[in-house]
Structure formats: structure tokens, C-alpha cells
Design a protein around this nucleic acid. Structure first.
Lengths: 220, 220
DNA sequence: CCTACCGATCGGTAGG
DNA sequence: CCTACCGATCGGTAGG
């Protein structure tokens, strides 16, 4: 019996590093060619691994797709949500910061083929029910919920009008990000970022109270 | 030398019918599994044709993809744009009618997997430049231009404020349709149609002049 | 992690 | 439109 737990031996550490490298590349491939276009052979070849060697990490293509979606979610959370959530203060300024970070992320080509989630949700929305479809749909729900909660916080603080529907506001802000992504990726139209940001700002202004408008002016 | 032109002999007529049937099914498959997921073997099998028999209609997969995109555009034009364009009068009511028709189309499952274009543009936006990417991007541009022109007409008629940017308005209205489609297809959330329509209406109201508001009230 | 292999399917061709 | 075929690649397995 070995004295060290597998978790701490050299092989496991090396294995984790390989696993991480695989998934980072898998997310990039999937962002370009989709979760179905992410093939085991291509992923392995690009990393200098054998197909079966890579396959052993996941056991099935479905598991690879699930792990890839999970890795993308972790990157998005680190890159966009966490830096803003770390700000102590809920409110309209935090919602604006989240939207700003999101726009930067959409422009910044964090993934090789643009936003993994916008691409993946368009891809899997026609798939039959199953773990991958559920995972992607759940990740989008989580994002929509963050937007809604941040809007709800701003409303509760009196920065957005008391009679607004936070979910409706979140729906519209989310829509602007999607449209921004499409114009940028499909038409390579960089003015889309101005259009998207302008749309978000004027939409927020519409629902803002005088106190909220003050917050928006500061954030600008 | 045959006496009749090929265009009028029985084979050609039968061939056209087959061609049409192939493309109608191709659009459905592509709306579910994408233009890459549209395979010649599967398309042929579903129609009771041999692979090579079907292949002879197009000559390459790329040609099949281009023809499929063209067929989808023709269906969309017939179903959504033409009925509204046939109305003589440009103006805000016509823009509202176009948006209404679009929402009905998005809900109506005209294609098996939802809007072919929203799916196709998310798919090809990561492809290298080429005829298929160009064709899909061009079709989206045409739609964006129709929205923009209708908004511009309404502005010229004094129904929308003179200082608005029709392209910005079109961008936002388009965004709401995309978000509607995603919520419906990914989350199977039928309330998305209310959200989308509500977003469109209030967005139009924001830019409308008093004359425009009267048109909106009539259209409601 | 590897080599070597499986049956199925891919886009495409030859020849009729 | 067909049968018969090509090389490449797919997801996955056996065995180490």
C-alpha cells in the first residue's frame, strides 16, 4: 500500500495539469466549431496525445462535452462575475459593472470563437433532452438569474423604479449582449460594442429613479 | 436533337419537384443540427434516395449548404417579409406589423429546429471566410436593413422622433427577437413571447412622437 | 498514458 | 437517378 494518497502523488498532479490543458483547448475548439464539432481525435492531435489516451480522461464524448461546458463556466465566472461580485455593495453601480465586464469579455476574445455560451446554447437548443443540453441551459439560467438579482437589488435600494419587473429588464439587457456578440462575430462590426453599451445604458436610464440616475452618472 | 427544351420536359419538372423537396427537408435538418450537421447520407436516407443520387443535385456539400441557406431565405421572405411589404403604406404601423409577423414566425416552428438564421449565424460566425459564411452573413444583413429602413420610413413620416438613429433602434429590436428565440428554444419558456413583444413595444414607444403613439395605440 | 484495432459514417468519385 | 467503391475520420474498445 502506498504511503501517499493518490491525490498527492506526482502522477495525479501531472494528470490534473494535463486535464486542465485539455479542457482549456476543448473550450476554444467548441467555441469555434461547437460541442459536436469538438472531436476527440482533433483535440488529442492538437495536444500531441493519442486519441485513446485523451479518451481515457473522460470515458465518453458526452463526458468530454460536459467537462468542457463546466470549464467554460468556470472561466466565465472568474473573468466576468467574480470580480464584480467581490465588490461589497449591491446596487445599480454593481449591475453596470457587471454589464461592462460582460461587454469587455465579449470583445476580448476570451475564447477563440467568441462567447462559448451564446454559441453552445444556440447549438444545443435543438438537441433532445439530455445531460449536455441540461448543463448548458442551466448555465444560461444561472447567468440570467445573476442579472435579475442585481437588478432586483438596485430596485430594492430605490435606484430603479419600484414597479419595474427585474426579470424583464434582465431579459432586455441580456438581449443586447447577444446582439453585440453576433454583430461582432458575424459581421466583424466593432461599432456593435457602442450600440450594445448605448442600448444597455439608455435601458437602465428608463427604469432608473432620480437616485439611480445619479449612480449612472457616476458610473459613466 | 430533342424537340422540347429540357426546361419543359417531364424529367425537368420532376427534377425540380425533387429539388424542392430535398431543400425543404435540408432546411429542417440544418435548423436542428446546423449546416455542418446536415449530412448528405442522412438527407438522402430520409428522402429514400441514394447518397450519390442526392449528391448529383448539388455537386458538393458546400453547394448543398448554400442552396439550403437560399431556400431558408425564400421561406422567411414569403412567410414574414412579403405579407408586410405588400401593405402599401410605409410607417410605424408597418414596422409593428413586421415585428408581429416575426414573433409569430419564431413561435410557429416554421422550421423544425427554430429560426434557421439565428442558428446558422451563430454556427458560421466562427468559420473562415467563404461562400457559406458570406451567404448567411448577407442574409442577416438584409434582415437588419429591412428593420432599419422601416424605422427610417417611420421617422421620415414623423412617427418616430427626428433625432433617433434608425440603425440603433433596429439593433435593439433585432436583439429582442434573438432573446425571444433563445428563451423559447433553450428553456421552452413561452413567456418569452410576452417579454419580447413587451420589450419591442416599449422600445418603440420611447422613440415615438405623439403621432407615432397614436399609430401604436391603433396597432395594439 | 500507448498501439492496434472495431464498425459506422463522412464527403466524394467511377461508371453506368 | 443507381450500385459500388475510395480514403479519412468518427466514437469507442482491447490489452497493455
Amino acid at each position: 500500500m502506498p504511503t501517499a494518497e493518490p491525490r498527492f502523488d506526482g502522477r495525479r498532479v501531472r494528470g490534473d495539469r494535463t486535464h486542465h490543458a485539455i479542457l482549456r483547448r476543448a473550450v476554444d475548439i467548441a467555441s469555434v466549431d461547437g460541442l459536436e464539432g469538438l472531436t476527440i481525435g482533433r483535440l488529442a492531435g492538437g495536444l500531441g496525445l493519442s486519441k485513446s489516451g485523451l479518451f481515457a480522461h473522460f470515458g465518453s464524448k458526452e463526458e468530454l462535452q460536459l467537462s468542457t461546458a463546466g470549464a467554460a463556466a468556470a472561466i466565465f465566472a472568474d473573468e466576468v462575475v467574480a470580480p464584480v461580485a467581490a465588490r461589497a455593495e449591491p446596487g445599480l453601480a454593481r449591475l453596470v459593472a457587471l454589464l461592462d465586464g460582460w461587454c469587455d469579455y465579449l470583445r476580448g476574445d476570451v475564447f477563440a470563437g467568441g462567447c462559448f455560451f451564446i454559441a453552445a446554447s444556440a447549438e444545443v437548443d435543438g438537441w433532445p433532452d439530455g445531460p449536455v443540453r441540461d448543463a448548458v441551459a442551466g448555465q444560461m439560467r444561472r447567468w440570467e438569474r445573476v442579472l435579475t438579482e442585481y437588478a432586483e437589488d438596485a430596485r430594492r435600494r430605490g435606484e430603479l423604479a419600484p414597479d419595474i419587473d427585474p426579470a424583464q429588464l434582465a431579459f432586455e439587457l441580456d438581449a443586447f449582449g447577444m446582439a453585440m456578440n453576433r454583430a461582432w462575430r458575424l459581421h466583424r462590426d466593432a461599432t456593435a460594442f457602442d450600440r450594445g453599451r448605448c442600448a444597455m445604458r439608455s435601458r437602465l436610464e428608463r427604469d432608473a429613479t432620480p437616485a439611480g440616475r445619479a449612480s449612472l452618472a457616476v458610473a459613466a
